[in-house]
């Protein structure tokens, strides 16, 4: 992580696109908010009649609010995308998980092996005794 790695072209582009998406969304939020505030001031002279102007302002405000919400959801999507990207491409952590898993399984394996070995030793010793007993007995 500390050493900057050279990423392939596509990954680089993807990361850049994430960055631009972030900037765009934030910008869109800010701009829309500013515009809404400006609209609320209501200081603009137009050729339109007041009522029409009011209607237009209302509509514009709604649209801008919806835009802000959209930008927010887009940011959420971006977060989820980045999470997904991190999960899928975070090879160091995956390697760590694999190493941990393999270590776990190896210890389990040795444990099982040891248990099996001791079991085998016990059983073979017992089997020897039992065989001895069986073949020496009359009842076969």
């Amino acid at each position: 992580m500390s050493t900057p790695r050279t990423l392939p072209q596509s990954k680089e582009a993807l990361l850049k696109s994430y960055r631009t998406r972030l900037k765009d969304d934030v910008k869109s939020m800010v701009e829309n908010f500013e515009e809404t505030v400006k609209l609320a001031k209501g200081e603009h002279d137009t050729q339109l009649s007041r009522m029409t102007q009011c209607e237009q302002d209302t509509y514009e405000m709604h649209v801008r609010a919806a835009n802000m919400v959209r930008a927010g959801e887009s940011l959420m999507k971006l977060v989820s995308d980045i999470k997904q990207y991190l999960i899928l491409n975070d090879f160091p952590s995956v390697n760590e998980a694999i190493a941990q898993n393999s270590k776990l399984f190896r210890t389990k394996q040795t444990e099982c092996d040891q248990k099996l070995m001791s079991l085998r030793d016990d059983i073979s010793a017992d089997l020897h005794d039992l065989e001895e007993e069986y073949y020496n007995s009359i009842n076969k």
């Binding site: 809404t36 609209l39 302002d57 405000m61 609010a65 802000m68």
Partner: peptide, 15 residues
């Protein structure tokens, strides 16, 4: 204008 702002605020709040 107030009504318009309230509408916009409503949209924002639901979002």
């Amino acid at each position: 204008r107030k009504k318009a702002l309230a509408g916009a605020a409503n949209v924002l709040l639901t979002g």
